[in-house]
Amino acid sequence: MTAETIIQSLASGLLMGLLYGLIAVGLALIFGLMDVVNFAHGEFLMIAMYITFFLFAFFAIDPLLSAPLVAAALFVFGALVYLLIVRFAVRAKANAGMVQIFSTFGLAIVMRGVAQFFFTPDYRSVTHSWLGGKTVSIGGIFLPQPQLIGAAVAIAAFGGLYFFIHRTDFGRALEATREDAGAVALVGIDKNRVFALGWGLGAALVGLAGAIMSIFFYIYPDVGASFALIAYVTVALGGFGSVFGAFAGGIIVGLVEASTALLLPPSLKSVGIYAVYLLVVFVRPRGLFGSI
């Protein structure tokens, strides 16, 4: 193993990690807002990838251009999921935690079924996109262009999200609602509207990730499952509810995955991620940046 291969894989691990962060941040945002873990998060990603695929297949819109459209579509979808399902799940007086887990888990199964029904279980891919398969060489290190753009989009999205939460009225309403949902009602903020917008925003972020991912990943009804677990681990590693934690968690997960792949057989590369998660929470039971 030369120094070059190590740098090479750590660099691609970093890029992938930033994308993991982007996939996970929607989950972290929704959890921070209302303490709900969306067990259909992977399926949100799957739907975003399919939308990107069909925009490409039917209208020849490159994933880079369709990404904002996909994010907008997912925004609407996320808000609808809140209004039609989650709104009722959080009202449950008994077993609130389990009801949230299983109503969103049921949604995940339905979404997979719908995807199979309309799109068949076949693997699909976006072929001949602008960036697909292209690499760029920086100082002897080859980096795939889609992942590079994905990482840039992820950084931009995190920057935008930071600005949004701290500088806009809606962002402040979001922060206020997560602090105390009862009190914001007294100052005339509609809690349901804020939650719906929060779900929309969370879904839009994973939609953005899905659009980029579709450039270099196969698209099939179960694709979400493989990324969902990584997203949960990323969010928990960073600390539930912390947007910055998801960013940091994503980078750590990407780097750990790449280093594990260097040391162990490729099929075991996720073991490193899981082991690091366990080590972190055994030392810090609230994740790296989670608040009590």
Binding site: M98, V99, V114
Partner: peptide, 24 residues
């Protein structure tokens, strides 16, 4: 049929029961 209708029914049932009767 392999077309996922069973998943839709199954998932729909899970959503319906967990929302309608959270206590079981």
């Amino acid at each position: 049929s392999g077309r996922g209708v069973d998943l839709i029914v199954y998932g729909g049932l899970i959503i319906a029961i967990s929302l309608a009767r959270p206590q079981g």
